[in-house]
């Protein structure tokens, strides 16, 4: 199939970027979206031009590296699908496709379509864990966890940290990512002792990183490749309010 691509090119964080137009003549409809970009890059190398930089790794929808906004939608038009799992048969012959990076202040462009998402790591480092030193664990079956609770935690834990939620949100908010981790750990009995300090610290780190705020558009969940639910955000809000009130009246410092 024949395609016209408008791709965001930006040499580095300091320079301004712009959309460049490329034409591809023979792309197999069985190719994945990233394979289509591989073909374009091979063509650019052959023409003596600099190929397009984009993040990708596992190409099976789980590592969360790929981060392309395709025709204005993070990860493209298919629901619950990462860009690497998107296939060209989804597009029409002769179609024009616009490809841009994730756009958010805390995700600065490094080059072309590659952004720096380390703000997510910062949020995790603030509290996205259960303190459990290696070797100190009790037997795994010591605590029974109701299946429903465990399934709910797994729903939240399925997040791949790709950042599409931020990219899609009209406010560039990171609530869905942060809440998925909070909901996963706060809903398990192992995570209860650190529940309050976790949610306060993670929300604090999220705000500090400069993400926008949540106004409940729901775009995040709609583009999420793992379909993380808005319920996670509601839970985080609840946990956050509770923690705020508790620490306000508590003798102990959180």
């Amino acid at each position: 199939m024949k395609l016209t691509l408008k791709v965001w090119r930006q040499k580095n964080a300091q320079t301004k970027g712009r959309l460049e137009t490329y034409v591809l003549d023979s792309v197999s409809k069985d190719s994945s979206f990233l394979e289509m970009l591989d073909i374009l890059n091979e063509q650019l190398i052959a023409d003596g031009e600099v190929p397009i930089a984009f993040d990708h790794d596992c190409r099976e929808g789980i590592c969360g590296a790929c981060s392309l906004t395709i025709n204005g939608i993070p990860h493209g038009p298919d629901r619950a699908t990462t860009a690497c799992q998107l296939h060209m048969r989804r597009f029409k012959d002769g179609e024009t496709i616009t490809i841009e990076p994730w756009r958010a202040k805390p995700f600065p462009v490094i080059k072309d379509l590659v952004t720096d998402r380390s703000a997510f790591d910062d949020i995790m480092q603030a509290g996205g864990f259960i303190t459990a030193r290696t070797g100190s664990a009790i037997d795994a079956n010591e605590i029974a966890i109701p299946k429903d609770d465990s399934d709910y935690a797994m729903d939240a834990a399925a997040c791949i940290g790709c950042g599409a939620c931020v990219a899609a949100c009209k406010n560039a908010s990171a609530m869905l990512f942060t809440s998925a981790k909070v909901a996963h750990l706060n809903s398990l009995p192992q995570g209860k002792p650190e529940k309050d300090r976790r949610v306060l610290a993670m929300v604090g780190a999220m705000d500090e990183a400069g993400f926008g705020s949540c106004t409940n558009y729901g775009e995040c969940s709609a583009v999420c490749p793992k379909e993380i639910s808005l319920d996670m955000i509601a839970q985080m809000n609840r946990d956050y309010l509770t923690a705020k009130v508790k620490t306000f009246f508590s003798q102990k410092s959180a």
Partner: peptide, 9 residues
């Protein structure tokens, strides 16, 4: 044991 303690669901 270790993984469960860390919250692996």
């Amino acid at each position: 044991d270790q993984c469960v303690a860390q919250g692996v669901p």
